[in-house]
Design a protein around this nucleic acid. Structure first.
Lengths: 343, 343
DNA sequence: GTGAAAGCGCTAACAC
DNA sequence: GTGTTAGCGCTTTCAC
């Protein structure tokens, strides 16, 4: 019971422990613990008594001690890509915000881990040091080392984004439906000669977006002509080269697979004297602040990234609390119709 | 020594503890602990022996146990503003990245805390639950609750950004010098009729930027005329209203206090038929991807935000390791001269 | 319904 | 230079 040389500088904020509470109340640590956690049988009176004491003493259980006792940290890890380009888009930041808000509500905290390319040492340190109970991956690359490692260590995780591998718990927005709908919208405007400026066909999200685009054409009785889709245009140079040929064909509408492609295409069109929407309509499969503030504002698909993060966070915490891990969850979207597709 | 019902599902990954190591080596926990931490006297031979064992056994000390024993978490908290507008700028994300990279190198991890306005319950939970050893604030508001709380709890922290209160440990880029230099640059181009589109005069950063602007004018023998500076233009409407009057005066160059103002001003100018840099030059006191990708690209002040974060992270860890807390640190910048100020 | 006591895995004061 | 031992503050088994 003697405590060493700890009490020599007991401030007002002197550590009050569960033992302290127990003694003051004439109870045992066990009972107090049960009264707090709600596990085990405690008489209503006792429980009430403990609650009261806690209220006014401002006692807070030491989470580290609890962690040690139950082997849980109440922290979840979130990966953050370090790529320069991704650094500039607010997607991850917004995600992080959504995740944090959601898990905080359930008494978990978020610790971040930067992943540079396939270098996942940060993530490994986090799990090897027992700093987190689970993980949220914010994107997946081919043969993802982070994924492999988490699986091997049997750490629960969920992916924000899509994967063909449905054994990966994932949450993403419904790209397929969204892109189908926005494509249908421009078709509904009477536009027929559509060109899709597409990105990397290897990306899962590209596949889904393309599928939505194709589905819309099909249900309108059209087919994406061989030249209706131009892949590999995430590269600025490729885009620059492709645009002259594309415009030579006099398309009615340019559909851009993401906002980066859209923003570059718009710059090019502007420089080359094309007026939007007069000369050509433009729409993007991914909205961002840039799409809205552009002149003219661009029709685009808006997804609620905060919600995406929150959903992933809740799914993970569910899993950590013993519920079955989700398999796949698709979130909604909204079409922002703006001036760039005005008839 | 008997362990309860833990070993019943001992996988290959069975928990190896320091006791395990000690026994296997015929040493005591203490000695092993010392050999690992390097504290206290251990013979070179013993140290070597322990190192070897650790290498091949893959033993990793349990950080939670250490945390409990030494009352340190090896985590630092980072605040993240939740404002929608700030959500769209990559500043915080890049900061976070810089902080994380830096502190990871020193075996600390980063826990994020969302701050909505003056609601700092997230931050409070973090420190009350002993989840972090220190904090990094990524901005300061008037009478900042987070700051007040951290001070009261005597939690070490550092601010990314500036404050007049030099008792606040802070790291920021040198706005004064940067703005003075970029202003001098445009003056050197022979431009004389400058107008500064300024933001909120209450913000510390605005004051510093203005001071740099004014200093440049002064050393060129000029004075910012009463109408040379227009405050309060962070508000989109205010800007919209002010611009016509401003342009009536036929300024040579518009200096924008940040990239949001710059981007809005550019949109307006474009809409109203002004050509840049022919009709008017434009420069921004804050660079961003938008400034570079704009047509034409905009001259701006570039600061290394990653470095800002890293510097703050290191300063905080220094403090946590017992070094004196820094007082104030100013980082460099770079002027990006682009087409918008081409003579 | 309540309590005693044994952990969780590590550090550090103290003795040898 | 090394070992003994008593914590760190909580949970949980087992007995009453």
């Amino acid at each position: 019971m003697s405590n060493r040389l700890r009490n020599d500088k007991n401030k007002d904020k002197s550590k009050v422990t569960i033992l302290q509470v127990a003694q003051d109340l004439g109870l045992s640590k066990t009972t107090v613990s049960r009264a707090i956690s709600g596990k085990g049988r405690v008489s209503a009176a006792t429980r009430e008594q403990v609650q009261q004491y806690i209220e006014k003493s401002g006692y807070r259980p030491n989470l580290i001690a609890k962690s040690l006792a139950v082997s849980k940290t109440f922290n979840i890890g979130v990966s953050l890509p370090s790529d320069a380009e991704l650094n500039e888009i607010p997607f991850f930041q917004t995600c992080l915000y959504g995740i944090t808000e959601a898990v905080n509500l359930r008494d978990y905290d978020v610790v971040v881990s930067v992943i540079s390319g396939q270098d996942v040492t940060g993530l490994k340190r986090l799990v090897l040091n027992n700093k987190v109970d689970g993980f949220i991956l914010t994107r997946l690359v081919e043969n993802d080392s982070a994924l492999l490692f988490l699986r091997e260590m049997e750490i629960p995780f969920v992916l924000i984004g899509s994967s063909d591998d449905t054994s990966i718990p994932q949450v993403d927005s419904d790209h397929f439906s969204g892109c189908r709908e926005i494509t249908s919208h421009v078709l509904g405007l009477g536009l027929r000669r559509l060109t899709l400026l597409a990105g990397n066909p290897a990306h899962q999200v590209s596949k889904e977006r393309y599928a939505g685009f194709a589905a819309a054409l099909e249900s309108a009785g059209l087919k994406p002509g061989a030249d209706g889709v131009r892949w590999g245009l995430s590269d600025a140079k490729k885009l620059e080269e492709a645009l002259p040929e594309i415009m030579k064909e006099k398309p009615d509408c340019l559909l851009c697979m993401d906002d980066v492609i859209a923003s570059r295409a718009l710059t090019w069109l502007h420089r080359h004297g094309y007026e939007i929407p007069k000369d050509v309509k433009v729409a993007s499969f991914h909205d961002s602040a840039f799409m809205e503030s552009h002149t003219p504002p661009v029709t685009a698909l808006r997804i609620n990234v905060t919600e995406l993060g929150a959903s992933a966070g809740n799914a993970l915490v569910d899993a950590l609390e013993g519920k079955e891990l989700i398999e796949r969850r698709r979130l909604g979207y909204e079409i922002q119709i703006r001036e760039s597709t005005r008839p």
